[in-house]
Simulated assay, not measured.
Amino acid sequence: MDKKAFLGMGLLGSNFVKAMAKRGESVQVWNRTTAKAMGLEQFGATAFADVKEAVQGVTRIHVTLKDDVSVDEVLEAASAGFTPGAIIIDHTTTSKEGVIRRTAYWKERGVTYQHAPVFMGPANALDSTGYMLISGDEALIKTLEPELKPMTGKLIHYGPEVGKAASIKLIGNAFLVCFAFGLRDMMGVAKAQGVGVDDILKLFQDWNPGAQADARLKRLSMDDHTNPSWELAMARKDTQLFLDSAQQNNIQLSLLPAIAGVMDQWIEKGFGNNDWTIVGKDFS
């Protein structure tokens, strides 16, 4: 089996390597902090202090780093050791623009760069579950599929547009951030009401608001909001109750004050009797 290199031994990268080793793959690893790479040797990987040496003799170079800057710096430093025909597979969450630029830059230098970001935590990387996103050169993707599928629970294609997978990953992460902070605000309102987390968990056992995400997105993006299931003015009334309760109990909320401001803007424009999801028209 051909050797592979993996650059970036954080929580995600190190568990990817452990899973590769379990599958009997030969992996050469590197990390800025050499000790982290050395720690993978007990699982069968070969660690290198010099990134150029880590990529020598391999046909696939996997990358899981911090951001665009770190990816650019590490790949540039490693490039002197690239084997002709080697393919870079970058799992880092980066900008769409960075992916487009890197794809073109490395192509000019005779190197193939493919972005494949993931919705996977360390446990997913170790168990080969979760989701990997990919877009770009479809012939290349077809070639890489047999190698990438064992790394993840599902490999999701987003077509031939270079950078599309990067955009989808950022969109998904934006939702996760808002989701977590939405739960934080909910916890704040619950505290103001004297309700504990256990009671909220009990509610979610019977009522799953996450199941509404699909339908809610469709309502936010629809053209006609004149047949309301919940009027914007009524949603704003409830939002004020959240805010008042938190203020009375000296609890600082993150999202709800800004949400109230957006609602007020739409109400001032005369849409108070429309469905509250009319606020999605800002972006639809």
Rank of each mutant, 00 (worst) to 15 (best):
N208Y: 04
Q212N: 07
W230R: 00
L217N: 11
D214Q: 11
F204K: 01
P228E: 06
W207C: 01
Q212Y: 12
T226F: 00
A213F: 14
S229Q: 12
V195D: 05
R216H: 08
N227S: 02
R216D: 07
P228T: 13
K218E: 09
L220I: 09
L232A: 12
Q205D: 14
D198Q: 11
D199M: 09
K218I: 05
A235H: 15
N227Q: 12
A235S: 14
M234H: 14
P228V: 11
A211P: 03
S229T: 15
N227T: 12
E231F: 04
Q205L: 03
A211Y: 02
A235T: 15
N227C: 00
K218V: 10
R216I: 12
S229D: 08
A211V: 10
L232W: 13
L232G: 12
A215C: 01
L203T: 15
Q212T: 15
D224R: 02
R219I: 05
V195A: 09
P209Y: 14
L203F: 15
D198V: 08
L220W: 02
G196W: 00
W230G: 06
K202W: 03
K202L: 04
Q212A: 14
N227G: 02
K218P: 00
E231D: 06
D199L: 07
D214H: 06
A233S: 10
P228G: 10
S221Q: 06
D198F: 04
H225G: 08
K202F: 01
A233P: 01
D199I: 10
L220E: 08
D206M: 05
F204P: 00
S221P: 00
R216M: 06
Q212C: 02
P209L: 01
D199K: 15
G210I: 12
G196M: 02
A233Q: 11
K218L: 01
L220Q: 03
A215I: 07
L203H: 12
V195S: 10
L217F: 11
R216N: 06
D199P: 00
D198N: 11
S229F: 05
T226N: 04
E231P: 04
A211F: 02
Q205P: 00
A235R: 12
D224M: 00
K202E: 12
L232T: 15
Q212D: 08
H225S: 05
N208Q: 10
G196R: 07
D198I: 02
W230L: 11
D198A: 14
W207A: 06
A215V: 12
A215G: 05
P228A: 08
K218S: 10
Q205Y: 07
V195Y: 09
A213D: 07
R216P: 00
T226R: 10
F204V: 08
A233N: 07
D224H: 04
Q205A: 13
A211L: 04
L232I: 13
R216F: 10
P228H: 12
H225P: 04
K202I: 02
F204Y: 11
A235Y: 08
W207F: 15
Q212L: 05
S221N: 08
P228Y: 08
H225M: 02
L203S: 13
L203Q: 11
D198S: 11
A215P: 00
W207M: 02
K218W: 01
N208I: 05
D224A: 00
L217Q: 11
L201V: 13
S229L: 06
H225Q: 06
N208V: 07
H225A: 04
M234A: 14
G196A: 08
